[in-house]
Every structure is written in structure tokens, then in C-alpha cells.
């Protein structure tokens, strides 16, 4: 059972640094990010999440974002970052 990290409602400029710090604390094990409270996702926090996903993947761990609020999903789609965040499964079955 991966540990769960609950994401803040507003993921803007001010949230980017704390988000990275919080993620760093969970490094070395799979983690599940609860994005159900997210109301706003900005470009900087998006970067942190994408970079984290790659790092976890390279470490051989999972980083999943589940559950997700509608606002989070919409923002990920707007940024064209669904694949980068592992929210979209490609037709061949691989998570991009």
C-alpha cells in the first residue's frame, strides 16, 4: 500500500516549493497523490509533478495521481500534460 500525499487546493507559484519538499520526503517508495481537493493547477506545480513522476519511474516506484478533482483533470488536459502525468493510457495499453 503506497503512502498517500494529499495535494493542496491551490497549486500555484507559492505551492511549488512546498510541493517539491513534500514529494522529496516520500522519495524511495511508491506514492499516491490525492488530487481530489485541487481547485487550481498552475504551470510551476505541473513541472514539479511531471519531474517527480519521471524520478519515481526511474527509481522503479510508482507515482499515481488518484483520485482527481474535475479541476485537476481539466487543467491537465488544458496543459496537454495528461500523458506526462500518467492520466491517459495510450491505445497500445502503455501508460505514457
Amino acid at each position: 500500500m503506497p503512502s498517500t500525499l494529499c495535494l493542496d487546493a491551490v497549486l500555484d507559484l507559492k505551492a511549488a516549493q512546498p510541493l517539491k519538499a513534500a514529494l522529496t520526503e516520500h522519495r524511495g517508495a511508491s506514492v499516491q497523490l490525492d488530487a481530489s481537493n485541487v481547485e487550481r493547477l498552475g504551470g510551476l506545480c505541473l513541472q514539479v509533478l511531471v519531474a517527480a513522476r519521471r524520478a519515481w519511474s526511474e527509481d522503479g516506484h510508482d507515482l499515481t495521481i488518484e483520485p482527481r478533482s474535475a479541476a485537476f483533470s481539466a487543467a491537465a488536459a488544458l496543459f496537454a500534460a495528461e500523458a506526462h502525468l500518467g492520466l491517459r493510457v495510450d491505445t497500445d495499453g502503455d501508460v505514457s
Binding site: 514529494l23 511531471v50 496543459f79
Partner: peptide
């Protein structure tokens, strides 16, 4: 829309308030 993430560094050296995307 296409996200261009080439400039994104690895997680450890990422500066949270720097724009990469």
C-alpha cells in the same frame, strides 16, 4: 496543444519557481 518538456531537468535539480515548460 503540445507540451514541450525538453528543458525540464531531473527532479533533484529542479528549481520549483523556474519556468521550464
Amino acid at each position: 496543444v503540445e507540451l514541450l518538456d525538453d528543458a525540464l531537468p531531473v527532479f533533484d535539480s529542479l528549481e520549483p519557481e523556474t519556468a521550464y515548460f
